[in-house]
Amino acid sequence: MADDFRTTEVGERYAQALFDLAEEKGVLDAVRADLRSLRAAWLESADLRRLATSPLLAADDQVKGLVAIAAKAKFSAVTQNFLGLLAQNGRARDLTAVIAAFEALYAKKTGLVAAEVVSAQALTAAQLKTIQTTLRTTLGKDPELTTRVDPAILGGLKVKVGSKLFDASLKTKLDQMKFALKRA
């Protein structure tokens, strides 16, 4: 799935290695920014997803492709080398898990609270500000918001903070009604 950013054991191991190296080199924020850009590109580009996940592509081709993308995007040398190593080791398909695990490590180290907001349509600045204010009140901290549009939810919102998901989407409500009607 294009937007499946969940940690895995392999992703956590690679993310820890990248995190430690970035911290040692003093480029932690730069690597995080690179990975956030890469995450956005992953969500937008079917070609990038195919490059990283296709079993038909040789590891050498994945290395060349990912390093070229990283160089074109002007990612830090640490990120560029890491992406090359990931592909060389046949783990390019684990990129989303690495990104998710890296974000978790970064949040733990910095005390950052990240929240993902999914809506059926792009949110206005006023709506985002309301969500930010509500989350600040609820969490006691300023969350870092990322937004994503998913027309499949039909309406409403899904808000994920850490492992907690608040699902007020129209699709979920309709599914719950359908389930309740089947049981009646």
Rank of each mutant, 00 (worst) to 15 (best):
Q121E: 15
D20G: 04
E144T: 13
A71L: 11
A104S: 14
G26H: 07
K64C: 02
K164C: 02
D167Y: 11
S119P: 05
T110C: 03
K72E: 15
F82Q: 10
Q88H: 11
K109N: 04
D142M: 04
I99R: 09
L123H: 12
A107M: 07
L170P: 00
K173P: 00
L66K: 01
I69D: 00
N89E: 05
L95V: 07
T53S: 15
T133H: 04
A73V: 09
S163P: 04
L51D: 02
K158N: 05
V31P: 10
K141E: 02
V161E: 03
D29R: 14
L57Q: 06
A77D: 15
S76C: 07
N81L: 11
K158M: 14
A114T: 12
L51N: 04
E144W: 06
S45K: 13
V78W: 03
G111S: 06
R49S: 08
A87F: 08
F5K: 01
V149M: 05
K178G: 00
A41C: 11
E24G: 00
A70N: 10
D142G: 06
S37A: 15
L18H: 01
F82G: 09
R32Y: 13
T53F: 04
A46L: 13
K160P: 01
V118M: 05
L181S: 01
K173V: 00
A41D: 09
L86F: 03
A101C: 08
A180T: 06
R32Q: 14
V117L: 12
A101T: 02
D61H: 06
A104C: 01
T96P: 14
F19I: 02
K129Q: 15
F166E: 03
D20M: 04
K158S: 08
R136H: 11
V159G: 03
T137R: 14
K64Q: 14
L35M: 13
F75T: 09
Q127M: 03
L170R: 02
A59D: 15
D47R: 10
R148H: 11
E23M: 09
V113H: 00
L48Q: 08
A180F: 03
I131W: 02
T130H: 03
D150Q: 10
V149N: 02
Q88F: 08
A120P: 02
S169W: 01
Q127Y: 02
A184Y: 13
D167G: 08
L157Y: 03
A125G: 06
Q80N: 12
V113S: 01
D4C: 11
P151W: 12
V113A: 01
S119N: 02
A40T: 15
L95H: 04
F102V: 00
A97C: 03
D34L: 08
R136L: 12
K173L: 05
T172G: 13
